[in-house]
Structure formats: C-alpha cells, structure tokens
Amino acid sequence: MQILFLLYPDLTQLDMTGPAQVLARMPGARVDFAWKQIEPVMSDCSLALLPTVTLADAPQADILCVPGGYGCTDMMNDPHVLAWLRRQAAGATWVTSVCTGSLVLAAAGLLQGVRATCHWAWGAQLAKFGAIFVSERCVIDGKFMTAGGVTSGIDFAFRLVCELFGADVAEAIQLALEYDPQPIGGGTPATARPEVRALYETAIAPRLAARMAAIDSAAAAIGSQPLHAASA
C-alpha cells in the first residue's frame, strides 16, 4: 500500500509525522515523502525533513496526504503542486489532509461539494472553494478524509487504519505507540478560556492578511478554469 505525503517548506511537521508514524505500521505499508527536489526541507519548527522522492518521480499513491502549516499559503497558489495533486488524486483510493492541508486540496479544485474539515481558525475559508466545512476532528466524504488541526492527524490515521484493517489492527498500533492522550483541557475553541483564545488570535494576526490574500487568489483561480471533478 503506497502512502504518499506532500512535503513542502514551512509545513507543520506533526501534521505529517504524526499520521506517518501510525500509517507506516499498517500491514504492507510503504511511505514516501514527495517534494520538487531531493534536498532537506525546513519545517515551521526548524526541523529539517528529507524527501524520499521528487514530485516528478513519485509513484501513484493509494493514500495521498497533504499536511498543513505556514507554507500552505504558498502551496495554494503553486500551479505545479496543484496540478500534481490533481493527477495523484485521480488514481488514489484515499485523498486526505491534516489541518490547513485541506485548503491546498481545495485550491486544487478537489473538494468542490465535499464535506471537509480544517484547523478551526481557517475552516470557514473552505467555502470559498465550494467545499462544505464541518467542524469535526475527522471527516469522511467518499474517498476524502480530512482532519482538523495538527494533533487530529494522529486520530485521523487511526480512523483510516480502522477503515482499512479493522479495529484490532488499529488498537494494536495504538498500544505499540502507547497513544493514550490525557489533555489538560481547552484544546478547542469551545473549551478554551476566552483570554487564551484572544492570546492565540493575536499571535496569528500578522499572517492573517497574507493567507487571506492567498486564499482569495486561489479561490478566484478555481472559478476561472475547468478542473477535475471531486470524485475523479
């Protein structure tokens, strides 16, 4: 089973490494990380990641996954990346994303009419691409499976293992990884204290304008050219 992650500069590494750690333990799994060149790619926490294959040489994915992160802003308006995603999605059994990776899938025209989720701060922007935002940790619509913000990528991976191999295999991997979260609370907009949410919203304000401009540009491009149907 070929699992293929899009790796790009300034992604949030846990969006990718969290689900990769889970999915790599599935029976028969092969995991590759694709980018334009085989050279280190810097994540948004200064952890360098090395692609295993170029976009041009990447095998056809059974499971295609797009992580999110600061760099998704550039990916939404990168015609080479968007065209590659459309080609891969056409032959993939599952097309997936974590966090703001769903905005990149949407910018590729793949989520029109599809129920999808995203990081809570950006999910409403999916509507600009014709997607239907659902505020849940993991959303399945046909062959599309999308996860919410960052850590939900781990939960999405276990959900996918359940879909493919059943609960016993998923729980065995969970036990091997000792995945038993015990959060401190306040990890969602509904449960966070108002002062904590205000602190976070202030922190993201500097990049808000740039990302919104990128979203509007990418959404305008969707409306100006024919694209593959979401079910392709």
Rank of each mutant, 00 (worst) to 15 (best):
I3L: 06
L4D: 04
L4S: 01
F5R: 10
F5D: 04
F5W: 14
P9Y: 02
P9C: 05
L11C: 12
Q13D: 08
T17Y: 12
P19D: 04
Q21T: 10
A24S: 15
A24C: 02
R25G: 03
M26S: 05
M26Q: 15
A34E: 12
W35I: 05
W35Q: 07
Q37V: 05
E39C: 03
E39W: 08
D44N: 13
D44Q: 07
C45I: 14
S46Q: 14
L47I: 08
P51Q: 09
L55C: 02
A56M: 02
P59C: 01
Q60S: 11
A61C: 00
I63S: 09
I63Q: 14
C65M: 15
P67W: 12
G69C: 04
M75T: 08
M75P: 03
A83F: 01
W84L: 03
L85M: 01
Q88R: 02
Q88E: 11
A89H: 02
A92M: 09
A92N: 03
A92D: 14
T96G: 11
S97K: 04
G101W: 15
S102C: 03
V104H: 09
V104K: 08
G109I: 00
L110Q: 04
L111G: 00
L111F: 10
Q112A: 07
V114D: 06
H119S: 13
A121P: 02
W122P: 00
G123L: 13
G123Q: 11
A124I: 06
L126Q: 07
F129P: 03
F129V: 00
I132D: 00
V134Q: 06
D141S: 06
F144V: 05
F144L: 03
G148E: 09
G149N: 09
G149E: 13
T151A: 08
T151V: 06
S152W: 11
G153M: 02
G153T: 06
F158D: 14
C162Q: 15
C162I: 09
E163Y: 10
F165I: 00
F165Q: 12
A167G: 05
A167C: 08
A170G: 06
A172D: 15
I173Q: 05
L175T: 14
A176K: 03
L177Y: 05
E178H: 04
I184N: 10
G186F: 00
P189Y: 12
T191I: 04
R193I: 04
P194S: 08
E195H: 01
A198I: 02
Y200W: 12
E201H: 10
T202I: 00
A203T: 15
A203Y: 13
A205R: 10
A209W: 11
A209L: 13
A210Q: 14
A210H: 12
A214N: 08
A214V: 06
A214Q: 08
D216R: 13
D216H: 12
D216L: 10
D216C: 01
S217T: 13
A221C: 04
G223A: 05
L227Y: 12
A230F: 08
S231F: 15
A232Y: 07
A232P: 00
A232S: 09
